[in-house]
Each structure stands twice: as structure tokens, then as C-alpha cells.
Design a binder for these strands. Structure first.
Lengths: 118, 118
DNA sequence: TATATTACTAACCTTTTGGTTAGCGCTTAC
DNA sequence: GTAAGCGCTAACCAAAAGGTTAGTAATATA
């Protein structure tokens, strides 16, 4: 048994805990991942639909972020080879496990904004 | 009353929720913020002590990150004008409200790693 | 006298991130 | 015939993030 004297003690003060936090941040950070996930959480969508819903994102970034999210098993991509091509994106069940994380990030964001701006 | 049909529905599907999440990520993202906070959570420390504990960080980054954290009221900085100068950093009470966020990020990080690597 | 010490900062460079434009291939609509 | 539509990708740039090195102040020690 190791003593954890820190103020985040129950979060574990060992390196593995820090690594796990870093893993999460790596997946979620950047301006676009969460907005895309939220957009898809409201229903499966095609590339151009997402592009319209997620304001300000460029084609290049959307393409890249969708790839990242797929690699992390947070969304699925399904192609029908019609012409013009139709590609559907949808969130996975794994993405739904992000629920609590998003909730805490949102809650703390609100607390923090009050603290800083007043 | 607005309907929220999405899979993250209880997180709010409105823009304010997304903004709050973004606020949190802006404060926490990057490689160093959380490691520094965790290091300080185990007790107040001086610049060089943090530099040794947070592996791999450069003086320049440490200096910058400490400034950011101070601006966000997550740490305090206190100087004694001895020679050589002594500067103490400590976490604030506000930083302790990050507790649940860190816990969820850690938990999800572990879930996610299992999912991806197996 | 020379050197180490602290908490940085300035100057310089590389890497990563992200934006912009143009274009592809094939079909449908004008 | 030609223009628009889809889901990208390549080429090119600008900005941001982050690393490395050197240097500063006044004192204490070798």
C-alpha cells in the first residue's frame, strides 16, 4: 500500500493514472473532435452534412478528424459505391462511454468560467 | 422545452454546453498542465523542484505553463526576495474542483486503452 | 578568484497544426 | 454541352507549440 498524500489523492498519484488522463486528452483535444461527436450523436450523417453543422471546420480537418475518430473506434464509416459516392458516419457504443467525461468537462467549464470572468 | 434526441442528450445539445467543454479543454490540454498540477497537489514546490519532478519539461515550457495556470487561478505564486530568489508554487482551492474531471478522464483513459490495444 | 546557485527570459530553430485552393471521377439536371 | 454534385486528397502556406542555448542578478562557497 502506497500513501497518497496529495490533494488529488483518490485519483491515484502514480504514473499510470497520469498516463490514463493523457490518453483521454490525446483523443479529445483539439477544436473539432467533440463538436463532431456531438453532431453525430444527434443521428448518423454524411460528410457534407457534418461539414455544414460543425461551423468553421475545413474539409481537410474534417477528413482528418473523422479518420482519427474512426481509428479510436468512436465512429464508424460506411460507404455505398453509388455515384456520387455516399459515405455515412455514426457514433459507436464505445463513444457513448464518453458520456460522463463530457458531463464533467461541461460542468467544470461552467464553474471555471464563473471563477475567471465572474 | 427543446427536445434533445442525441445520444449525449443529457449533456445538453446546445452550443453553451459545447462551449463549456471547450473552455475546460483549453485550460487542461497540452502535455504539461495536468502533470504540473498533480506534482503540486502533493505539496507546494519551487521552480526547480517541479522541473525535476515533471519529466522532460523544458524551463521555457514550465515557465509558460505556470503563468497560464496562475492566470486561470489554478495555482498561486509567491516570491521571497532573497538571493538567489525563492519562488513557491501551490495549488488553489479552485484547482481542487478539478477532482471529478481528472477522475473521469483517468477512468475513461483506462477503458479506452483496453478497447484500442485490447 | 572562480564557480555554483535560482528563476527565469531572449533569440533562434524545428515540428505540429490548421487553413486555402485546386482538382479528381462519374452521374444527373439544365 | 456543360455545370453541379460528393467525398475526399495534394500542394502550398501561416501560425502555434515547443525545444535548445546562452545569459542575467547577488551572494556563498571552494
Amino acid at each position: 500500500m502506497k500513501k497518497c498524500a496529495g490533494k488529488f489523492a483518490h485519483n491515484g498519484c502514480e504514473k499510470t493514472a497520469l498516463m490514463a488522463v493523457k490518453d483521454s486528452l490525446d483523443v479529445l483535444s483539439g477544436s473539432w473532435k467533440l463538436p463532431i461527436l456531438v453532431s453525430l450523436a444527434n443521428g448518423p450523417k454524411r460528410f457534407n452534412q457534418i461539414s455544414k453543422e460543425v461551423e468553421g471546420i475545413s474539409d481537410k480537418m474534417l477528413s482528418k478528424e473523422l479518420k482519427d475518430l474512426e481509428q479510436n473506434h468512436l465512429i464508424t464509416r460506411s460507404v455505398q459505391d453509388t455515384f456520387p459516392p455516399t459515405v455515412m458516419y455514426d457514433v459507436t457504443e464505445h463513444a457513448e462511454t464518453l458520456d460522463k467525461v463530457i458531463k464533467e468537462l461541461r460542468d467544470w467549464g461552467i464553474i471555471h468560467r464563473k471563477k475567471i470572468i465572474g
